[in-house]
Design a protein around this nucleic acid. Structure first.
Length: 694
DNA sequence: AGGCCGTACTG
DNA sequence: CAGTACG
DNA sequence: GCCT
């Protein structure tokens, strides 16, 4: 301490005495309490290094209040160079001299001190938001110098939306990259072939987007075992091979990606650039925003358990959006460009990125009943009202509930298997359950088809439950249900596979039952898994696939989109000619437009087109979301992203369907509401299916 | 200011 | 009907 | 919470 102090004095002494005096007398800096002096021991050199301009003077004073020392002249003691926003690295070098600038000097922009003060902590200096940009002028030109994934986002404010996907390609293939696998060819011409990609692709094409899309498309081609998947989607029966298969593939590709990325991550000290993403994990590459996502997820759970439905949804939307980002989102500006993230969430994202904490979250844990509420709501068939009621009745633990509370039969089962039902199911086990059911189905009727849905179909490595779609060509619901309920399910019980039925449409309308929820366990396992069967008439297969593939956020979005287009989408089909009243309440049932073809439904909604790639391959693009980017990359799926629109693709690789969705469905919905008759959409389609009133 | 998916099962 | 659930 |  004393040493540092003398250090300061020394610097002061170096400064012209007058100024020194001036500083102490005239300014009379009001030092903050010691423990608030986050800058203590630091020596700031501002650029320009004067306090003539009022804003800068303000910043300097503020920094001093928090313990920083202002070096009036350049000195060896300077620790931080605080650069005005309008200056570039070239200006810094000019002003200070390249020979004087040492790697130990921290060069940050003017936002650094106030941000540190706000969060009351010394923030990491390498964050993007604090960077001083290279090059004489703002703009994309600066790009030539930098690995491409850094530069485009740095200078511009509105880079984000369109880049979401592109970054996947960019990360995989930086410009200065030579060790790209030979298979991936950069083929500029390819883009033309997918022109129809998204509706508005031509509208607002940023300067970089062409090549980014090129890159992506090139990768698709290159990685393409594409042709084989194009045949028929979804009814892919054999899932047996896959689990480990796909994971291996994923691993491999991720390693490649990581390796490449490390090249572009190299810090260029001279330019004060360091890549923000220290995706070090070496083991598995995770979403760079994982930490942020975790925190927001906790917030979502918090709002869920206090019954704030809409906030919960907003947080979950934001999480879904963040999961698709390949870049670390560290700043408000970055975050706010993402659909579904507004000002308030953007601030939280930034706070998490900077401080690794969320103050709002910490302030939520105060209610003593909160952990209990959380505990109770973890029980299958227990929501907020029931959990609250139990707490009000004085129950404090699961044991209390078991012995004293009034439980429905299903709730008791949920209680007895509390841990089972909350634990994640490895993908391989999901497949194992599916295989057992599939086999039983085949024994009953060889023509039955079974598709694994849910997060598994979206490519997740583990799932919360097992979702199985069961159908049969040309069959009605009654036929399928009969086979299952009368034959397959009893057999599976007898086999000891099924453990219990939870929601089986038994008591009510014996008629229209379409789902069977229950629990199953693999032979030799004590762990019960939640398993959901969906009985689907052949004519509704496509709609059911969309529904059961999800995720829920996506389903709500696409259904909202449909409603804006005077249509209605549910698990049975897509209907047109819907009339709605006051609050969008439905007045007419509408007429069925499509139910059997998943693809056709997307098409009618304007969310899907077919694209022909150079070389004769083609890919189908569908709108889905909730797919992890890793899945996408390993699945060789790709999409181009366009502002306010999406394009997305699904391709069935092995038995996994990979989907991507970059469309901002909400925005599309709004647009749709305006020009319902315009078919700006179906650029790549001949049958827009748009006009709801044919 | 006001909407924010559409449905199935249980009691 | 409310509650819970499904994606 | 976000969006119109």
């Amino acid at each position: 301490m004393p040493a540092q102090f003398s250090n300061r004095r020394k610097i002061s002494a170096k400064a012209p005495p007058k100024l020194s005096k001036k500083q102490s007398s005239k300014k009379s800096i009001q030092l903050q309490p010691e423990d608030a002096q986050i800058f203590r021991g630091l020596v700031f050199y501002f650029l320009p290094n004067n306090d003539i301009a009022a804003p800068r003077r303000k910043r300097i004073e503020k920094a001093q209040e928090y313990g920083a020392l202002w070096a009036r002249e350049w000195s060896a003691d300077v620790t931080h160079v605080i650069v005005d926003a309008n200056l570039r690295m070239s200006d810094v070098e000019k002003a200070i001299g390249s020979d004087q600038l040492k790697p130990r000097h921290v060069i940050v922009n003017e936002k650094y001190p106030p941000d540190c003060i706000e969060y009351q902590v010394l923030l990491p200096t390498h964050l993007l938001k604090f960077q001083v940009f290279p090059g004489p002028r703002r703009g994309p030109e600066a790009e030539g110098q930098q690995p491409r994934e850094k530069s485009p986002k740095a200078p511009s404010e509105h880079f984000n939306r369109s880049k979401i996907f592109a970054t996947a390609g960019a990360a995989a293939k930086p410009d200065n990259e030579q060790e790209e696998p030979a298979v991936v060819t950069h083929e500029p011409a390819s883009f033309a072939a997918v022109e129809g990609f998204g509706p508005s692709i031509t509208t607002k094409k940023g300067e970089n987007e062409d090549d980014e899309l090129d890159r992506i498309v090139a990768e698709v081609q290159a990685t393409a075992d594409l042709p084989l998947e194009l045949e028929d989607d979804s009814l892919e029966p054999s899932s047996s091979t896959t689990a480990s298969d796909s994971e291996d593939g994923q691993l491999t590709r991720m390693q490649e990606k990581k390796h490449k990325r490390s090249i572009s991550d190299v810090v260029d000290p001279q330019l004060g650039f360091s890549c923000m993403r220290k995706n070090e994990g070496t083991s598995k590459s995770k979403n760079p925003n994982l930490r942020t996502i975790e925190m927001l997820d906790k917030m979502a759970h918090y709002y869920d358990r206090i019954g704030d439905r809409w906030r919960t949804i907003s947080y979950r939307k934001a999480i879904t959006a963040l999961k698709r980002q390949t870049d670390y989102i560290a700043t408000r500006e970055q975050a706010i460009g993402i659909p579904g993230i507004g000002e308030r969430l953007a601030s939280k994202v930034e706070e998490i990125a900077c401080t690794n904490k969320l103050r709002r979250l910490e302030s939520t844990v105060t209610d003593p009943n909160d952990p209990i509420l959380l505990l109770f709501m973890g029980i299958y068939q227990v929501g907020l009202p029931t959990a609250s009621r139990w707490i009000a009745q004085g129950h404090q633990s699961l044991e209390d509930l078991k012995s004293k509370a009034d439980l429905t039969p299903n709730q008791r089962i949920g209680l007895d298997h509390y841990d089972d039902f909350l634990s994640r199911i490895p993908r391989s086990e999901v497949m194992a359950h599916a295989d057992i059911v599939r086999r039983a189905c085949s024994n009953a009727d060889a023509q039955i088809q079974l598709v694994v849905g849910g997060s598994c179909r979206r490519g997740s490595a583990d799932c919360g439950d097992i979702d199985l779609i069961i159908t049969k060509e040309s069959a009605s619901l009654e036929q399928i249900r009969t086979i299952l309920v009368d034959t397959v399910i009893p057999q599976l019980f007898q086999d000891g596979f099924l453990q219990v039925g939870l929601a089986t449409s038994r008591s009510r309308s014996t008629d229209r039952g379409s789902k069977w929820h229950g629990a199953s366990a693999l032979p030799g396992s004590q762990v019960w898994r939640r398993i959901d069967l969906l009985f689907v008439p052949w004519d509704e297969f496509g709609a059911a696939l969309i529904y059961f593939t999800g995720n829920d956020i996506f389903n709500r979005s696409i259904r909202l989109l449909a409603s804006r287009k005077k249509m209605r989408l549910n698990q049975h089909g897509l209907y047109g000619d819907i009339m709605r009243g006051e609050k969008r309440e439905r007045i007419t049932q509408g007429r069925l437009l499509e139910g059997r073809s998943e693809e056709r439904i997307f098409e009618i909604l304007g969310l899907q087109t077919q694209h022909h790639l150079p070389g004769g391959a083609s890919i189908r693009i569908m709108a889905y979301m909730g797919i992890s980017l890793e899945s996408v990359i390993l699945g060789k799926l790709v999409a181009g992203a366009i502002p306010r629109c999406i394009a997305l693709s699904t391709i069935q690789k092995r038995d996994v369907v990979f989907h991507i969705c970059e469309i901002d469905l909400a925005t599309e919905a709004a647009t749709a509401a305006k020009n319902q008759t315009t078919s700006k959409w179906s650029k790549g389609t001949d049958q827009p299916g748009l006009s709801p009133h044919n």
